[in-house]
Design a protein around this nucleic acid. Sequence first.
DNA 1: GCATCTATTGACTTTTTGCAAGTAGCAATA
DNA 2: TATTGCTACTTGCAAAAAGTCAATAGATGC
Lengths: 143, 143
Amino acid sequence: MRRGRPWRGAEEGEPCPRRLRRFLEPCLLLLLHKRDAHGYELAEAIKLFGFDERNPVDASLIYRTLRWLERNGMVTSTWDTTSTAGPARRVYHLTQAGDRYLAAWMADLRETTRMLTAFLAEYERHMAEGQGEYHKTKSTQSF
Amino acid sequence: MRRGRPWRGAEEGEPCPRRLRRFLEPCLLLLLHKRDAHGYELAEAIKLFGFDERNPVDASLIYRTLRWLERNGMVTSTWDTTSTAGPARRVYHLTQAGDRYLAAWMADLRETTRMLTAFLAEYERHMAEGQGEYHKTKSTQSF
DNA sequence: GCATCTATTGACTTTTTGCAAGTAGCAATA
DNA sequence: TATTGCTACTTGCAAAAAGTCAATAGATGC
């Protein structure tokens, strides 16, 4: 699988690639809310959530996250040895705790979206007001 | 200043407190786009962006981020010794590179918001469809 | 036999954040 | 004038999160 590229700082004037901390958790949980699945499969499906070629996730991070979710009772797993091809697969299953955890994550992400939207609006408002120029207001003024 | 509380994992069924990686950068840059300011002042103003009592940022992170921005040419700083009260203040000033960096951050945050909104919509869609129940679809179905 | 795809794991490193302590100037007040 | 409190900034260390890389291994097709 493709690997995540490192961020070389501000050299190219590019900000750190947008990433929400632990965002893989709600992604995996939502997929498992739909149906049971194994890691490799989830690694493919996760691309639908914006983890494509331009923003890849390392497979090991997916597996690690799944094991963390299991250790914390959010999912359970069983080995599927009747696989059609390749080695055995660890198939994950969402628990009730995982279901609640997902709901809490979603509430949190809604809040994050609200906050982000407000932040972006504030930026637009400020830029519209000052025609994109900076350090133009007196330093005694409040923000 | 108040400190950020640690996250004790999934024990309480709570997700990791919403945080965008390095989100302090665009926050500080936007404030400095408005006018020059020193760290302590920025630490107060940043609360407007959702860093309040429930979601505090450690002051040291603010100062560290400012020094990082300076090392990378996004801001410059000078000492203000004519302060009305307390010790000298390091006053930060946005550079043109910082201005561009902020613009790149904003483009990135807009993209993040789009992605997040799509993710939330997909969750709602799925929940509306299945009445909130999970593991109900056949494992042969795609996601 | 060898390459390729499927599938998972573990070790190591770096980045980012959290936490604590330290320094220090100035002002009010007891 | 000693103490407290607010302003203001810095540093070191630890922990959390993420990135990097390599290894293992079954199955299939050439």
